[in-house]
């Protein structure tokens, strides 16, 4: 059912003022050389829709990812209010540390695994209501207003990236709504991206711990750090054979 407004909506322009202020700050940072630690693209104005000019992605350098470190996982849980309810089979995990051991040599690679934000996501293909969708800027999300909880996307995902909320929740955080009966997964910290943070909670935590294994950025912008890194050193997709063109790339595997 669609409700149509018979009123003219004239948005009071507080958001634009907000944006101007923020844009000015970012500009100030950019003027001082050497201050910028990571790419700071200007935040889009709050009233502007996201566009396909950006494609957000992530680069994981498994060479520096530590096997005994799960800072990214903890940060994600904290950022999105994911609780450990003591039931590992049904508790949500948006990002997890995966250890991959070569049977022949015994060599172990440790890496974070989460939604790969595919360009052609199988979860979006199979979702009957269109609740699983890919935002213009490449972020794959679940619209929980239309998710009926059929879990078909969980069967379809090649990365086991999705969780189903198996119990009623309370105390959810305002920027990360989640609730019983819906499927959820890594949002690439979409609330931070829209805010102009230009980073995700996991990448921030990884950098804070001094590992710098996670790099967030715009794959469409040739001048972004992630694009430069990928151009120079390359990066692989997990299950590249499926042709999904993932937004998360890995180095060292």
């Amino acid at each position: 059912m669609r409700y149509k407004l018979d009123l003219d909506i004239e948005e009071v322009n507080t958001d634009r003022r907000d944006f101007l202020r923020r844009a000015a700050t970012v500009g100030g940072l950019a003027i001082a050389p050497g201050v910028i630690l990571y790419q700071t693209g200007a935040a889009k104005p709050a009233d502007q829709a996201v566009s396909s000019q950006q494609r957000w992605g992530m680069l994981v350098n498994t060479n520096v990812c530590q096997e005994d470190c799960d800072a990214c996982v903890t940060a994600c849980n904290e950022e999105h209010g994911l609780w450990d309810l003591g039931r590992p089979e049904t508790d949500a995990q948006w990002i997890r540390k995966l250890n991959v051991k070569d049977k022949q040599t015994g060599h172990v690679t440790s890496l974070p695994m989460m939604c790969q934000h595919c360009e052609n996501p199988p979860c979006v293909d199979v979702c009957p209501t269109g609740a699983s969708f890919r935002r213009e800027d490449g972020i794959v999300l679940v619209d929980k207003h239309t998710c009926i909880g059929c879990r078909y996307c969980m069967l379809a995902c090649p990365y086991k990236a999705r969780s189903f909320v198996h119990e009623p929740l309370q105390d959810q955080l305002p920027h990360s709504p989640r609730g019983k009966g819906c499927v959820e997964s890594c949002t690439l910290c979409v609330h931070k991206v829209d805010r102009g943070d230009n980073n995700t909670a996991c990448a921030e935590a990884c950098a804070k711990d001094g590992h710098q294994a996670l790099l967030f950025g715009d794959l469409n912008d040739p001048s972004s750090e992630i694009s430069k890194q990928l151009k120079q050193h390359g990066g692989t997709q997990i299950r590249a054979d499926l042709g999904l063109n993932t937004g998360v790339r890995y180095q060292g595997i």
């Binding site: 009926i148 059929c150 189903f164």
Partner: peptide, 25 residues
Amino acid sequence: DLGRPDLLIVAMTKYNFKSIFAWNI
């Protein structure tokens, strides 16, 4: 068995025609 059986109306009104599940409906 749906997670949100109360949203069944959504399944009846919103379709993703690439989904084999939607065809099945």
